[in-house]
Amino acid sequence: MTEQTHFVEIRHAQKSFGTLEVLKDISLNVERGQIVGIIGSSGSGKSTLLRAINDLDPLTGGEIWLDGVQVNKTLPHRQYEIHINEMRQHVGMVFQHFNLFPHMTARENVTMAPKLLKSLYQAEADKLAEEQLDKVGMLERIDYYPSQLSGGQKQRVAIARALAMQPKLMLFDEATSALDPELVEEVNMVMKKLAEEHMTMIIVTHEMDFAASVCDRVLFMDKGVVVEEGPPSVLFKKPTQDRTRAFLRKHIEGAS
């Protein structure tokens, strides 16, 4: 087994649902502090790849490494559960549909996992909730329930919830796709702020402008393979592959 040298290392990731192969031998490295965008049409496998990183959609082949530890290692069920729960504490995830817990206030959404997993005292937990919600501009709504918040506000609380576990890596799965257009910017602002703080992020997105402005590298995926990757200045301006060009052309037409 080779030594892991990159912060996130995906080696020959392969994933099939029955006979349908959604990820075909994908390898990808992400360094600490890097921001990687993944673009592609729906069904290209980009969300599946992202969800494989914290084993939400387990791979059928290949390895995922994070900071020197293999995420998807082979262990008996009970040991694997302990291992994966520990791994996931270091990986924050933000979903397209927010998935906030509707029976908890913003404060409780943020503090539930740290209280349970890191045995914080109530005062520490409250301080944590205030810090994290302040960071995403939601401190004023700390005792609101998700049903009382707009989509953009919900997503900001969801980001605060993920950040409260002090993750080393943040995964964004189309974080703004379910939002009304006028609410996208407030979420993008929060993500930009994280980028400035050098949070390592992998971002699956449909927003080319946003990807171009925050990502160090962008991958274009199609039919389960990475067709092309590079810095946004190259990938968006001078794509080398026909499929990338077709996708970008369609996307720009679709947007205008």
């Binding site: 504490q89 979903f95 993920a162």
Partner: peptide, 13 residues
């Protein structure tokens, strides 16, 4: 998605 969100925070099943 509720279970997924909880599991990604590190909660056990």
């Amino acid at each position: 998605g509720q279970r997924e969100a909880a599991r990604t925070l590190g909660l056990s099943s």
